[in-house]
Design a protein around this nucleic acid. Structure first.
Lengths: 216, 216, 216, 216
DNA sequence: AATGAATGAGCTTTCATTCAT
DNA sequence: GATGAATGAAAGCTCATTCAT
C-alpha cells in the first residue's frame, strides 16, 4: 500500500494523506491496535515524518476526530432546507447525515465507535460535535411545538431527552446501515424515511395506518 | 478494589471475582488498554491464576461478554408483562432494560462500547444477544399491528428497520443516561417514558399534545 | 493420557511411573520445553506429588538419566560373550547396544540428545556412562592387539582415539536407525553388521572384497 | 562481550553481529535457555532491534543454522582435492571438516547439538546440509569401489549405511575433540588421521600392523 | 498417600517515540 | 522535506515451585 511514491510533497497535502491513512487504519484496527508503523506505511511515508507533522498518536487521533467531525457537521448543515417547516428541515438534515455516513464509513466508524470508547479527551471531542447537532435538533423540536401552537407544553428537560433519543436512533441506524452487506444496504433516503416514520409519526399512529410524508 | 485478602477460594467463586474485575477494568480502560496485570490486581489475585482459570485475554473477554449478555437478556425477559397489550409489554421490557443498564453500567459499557468495537469474534457475541431482543421487539410490533387491525400494511423489511431503530434508540438512551452526572440522571421509569413517548406516540402527534400513557 | 486412575500406589512404583512419563516427555519436547505440568499429567498424578518424590525438575532429569544410563550399560554388559575373541565380544556387545536403543528409543534420545546438550551437570552424568563403555572397548582393542601379537605398536593415545571413534560411530548409527521410518528400519543385527564391516574391516579392504564375518 | 559501542551501523553489518552473538549464546545456553535479552546484550544492541531485523527467536535460530551450515559445507568443499584418488579426497575433506569445526566450535555446537534436538523445522535444516555431505561421501565410496574394480559388490543400501557410519563417526570425533581441554586437543590433521585409520584401514587389519597413509 | 489453590520470576514480543543525517 | 537506525517501557503469557489441607 501507500500507492505511488510521491516525493517532496507540500506539508498541507502530506498531512491530509496521513490523516486519510489514519482514518482508515483506526477504523480497521481500532485506536489502540492501530500502530503508527501501519499508519505511516499506509500513508506511504516514513514514521518520523508522521511525528514531525502530527506530533504523537494522541494528537493524530484528535486531529482526525476534529476533521471528521467538522466534515460531518458541515454535511448536515449544508443539507438542511433552511426556512422550511420543522419536519422538512429534519427530513433534509437526516438525508444529509445518512448520505455522509454512507459515503465516509471509516470516518463515521472512527467518530461513532472509536472516539467515544477510548478515553475522555477523545470522547469530549465527539461530545462537542454531538452537542452542536443536538442543539440544532432541539431548536427544531421547539419550532415544531410553536408551529403546532402548544406553548409551554414541553418541558426543557423533556425536549432534551427527545433530542437525544432522535439523534441516538439516527446514529444507530447509520451504523446498522453501514454494517449491512452492500447489496442489502438501504439508500440514505430510505434510511431517513424509516427514521421519520418511526420518530415523527410514532409507532402507535403508524399501526393505525398513518404515515409521515414529505409535505409541500 | 482487591478488597479483603481471601485466600484459598474455590475455583467457581474466584472465576466470578475475576470476571467482575474484568468487567470493571474493560469498562474503565477499553479492551486493549486494560492490562491483565490490572485485572488481576483488581481481582485481588496473581496474574497466573487468571490465566489458569480463564486461559487468555480473549477468552476472558468472551466469557465476560457472554455473562453480561445473558444477564441483560434475562433482566429484560423477566421484566416483560407477558400477555399484556403490545405497548404495555414494550413499556415493561424497556423499564427492565433501563433498570438493568443503570444498575450495571460497567457491564453495559462493555457490551455496548467495547464488545462491538474490537473485532468480529466479540461483535458477533453481542450481535447474537441483540438478535434475540430484536426478534422480541419485532414480534411486539407485529402484535401491535394485528391489534390495530392493519393486516399487510407493514412490509417485513419495514418492520425490521423499525425494530432496529427502536432498539438502537433504547441503547443510545441507556448510554446517555449512564453518562449523565449522578444528580441529573433520570430514573429507569423516566427514561422508558421518554422513549415510549418518542417512539410510540411520535414527535408529530406529540407536538399536537398527545401523550402515550401506560393504559389499563 | 495418564491411563487408568490407580490411587494409593506405593512410592517405589509411583516413582517409576513418573520417570517413565518424564522419559517420554523429555524425549518428545526436549528438556527445557517439557513442563512439569505435562509430565505430571502423563504420569497420571498431581504436580505436587512429583515434587514430593523427585524434588525438582533438575533432580528428576538427573534421576532419569541415571536410570536410563544404567539400563543401557546393563544391556550391553549382559550381551557380551565373555571370554570369546575380541571381535566376537565387540560384535555381541554391539548387537546388545543396538537392540536396547531400538527397544528404548525415548530413553536413548534422552541420553544422546537431551542430556548432553543441556548443561554440564547432565552432560557429566552421560560422560560417566560413556567412560564405562569406552573403557570396555579400549580393553577389547588392547586384547585384539595382543591376539594379533602386535605389542607396543599402538600408543595409548591412539587407542583412545580409536575407541572414541568406534563408540561415536555406534551412537550415530543408533540415532540414525531410530530416526528411519519404521518399515525401513534395520534390525539390531543388521546395524551391528554394518558397523563391524565399517570399523573392523575398514573401507579400504572392504573395497577389495574383504568382509568381516562372525567367526567360530 | 558487547564490545565497543558502535552506533549507527548499517543493517547488514548489524545483522551479522547479531547472528554472531546468537551463535555464541545458543551454543553456551542451548536454544531454549538462551534468552533474546542475552543475545541482544552480547550483540551490544537493544532487544527491539534484534526483532526488527530478525523477526523472532525461531527465525533468528533458523538464520543462524543456515549461515553456519553453509559455511561448513563451503569449508569442506573447498578443502577437497578434486580429481585425486578417493581416499585422498576423503582425507582432504576430513581435514577441512575438522579444521572448520575446530575453528568454529560454537557454530558446530549449534549445528550438531542444538539444531538437531529442538524440533523438526530446525532439524530439517541440518538434515539438508547433512544430505549434501552424505551424498558426497557416497560418491567417494562408489568411486573407491570402482577404483578397486569391485563392481556390483556393494549394494546401494550397504553404501548408504557405510556413508552414515563414516559421517557419524566424523561428527562424533569433532564433538569429542572440541570437548577436550585445550592442551590435550588433537589437531585437525591428527583427528583426520585417526579417522582414516579407523574407517579406511579398519580395526582388524590395523591390529595386524597395517596403516593408512596419505599416498602419492 | 495425594491434591486444589496460588504465585514470583522470567520469557517473547510489540509499540510509541527519538536521534543523526 | 525526509529517513534509516535505534530504544525504554510495557504487555501477554508460561513455568517451576510451594502452601494448606
Amino acid at each position: 500500500m501507500g500507492g505511488v511514491k510521491s516525493k517532496r510533497v507540500p506539508r498541507a497535502v502530506r498531512e491530509q494523506q496521513m490523516m486519510d491513512a489514519a482514518v482508515l487504519t483506526f477504523a480497521r484496527r481500532g485506536y489502540r491496535a492501530a500502530s503508527m508503523d501501519e499508519i505511516a506505511e499506509v500513508a506511504g511515508v516514513s514514521k518520523p515524518l508522521v511525528y514531525l507533522y502530527l506530533n504523537s498518536k494522541e494528537e493524530l487521533f484528535t486531529a482526525v476526530i476534529q476533521r471528521e467531525a467538522a466534515a460531518l457537521v458541515a454535511a448536515v448543515r449544508g443539507a438542511v432546507e433552511q426556512g422550511a417547516a420543522a419536519d422538512r428541515q429534519l427530513w433534509s438534515g437526516l438525508k444529509g447525515f445518512f448520505a455522509h455516513t454512507a459515503e465516509h464509513p471509516e470516518g463515521w466508524a472512527v467518530l461513532h465507535q472509536q472516539a467515544r470508547t477510548h478515553g475522555e479527551p477523545f470522547a469530549l471531542e465527539v461530545a462537542a460535535m454531538r452537542a452542536e447537532i443536538i442543539e440544532f435538533v432541539t431548536g427544531l423540536i421547539g419550532a415544531a411545538a410553536r408551529e403546532a401552537g402548544c406553548d409551554e407544553s414541553l418541558a426543557e428537560r423533556e425536549v432534551s431527552g427527545l433530542a437525544h433519543a432522535l439523534v441516538g436512533s439516527a446514529e444507530s441506524l447509520a451504523e446498522w446501515a453501514n454494517a449491512r452487506p452492500e447489496d442489502a444496504r438501504p439508500s440514505a433516503k430510505e434510511t431517513a424515511a424509516t427514521l421519520m416514520n418511526f420518530a415523527w409519526t410514532g409507532l402507535g399512529p403508524l399501526m393505525g395506518g398513518e404515515r409521515w410524508a414529505p409535505g409541500g
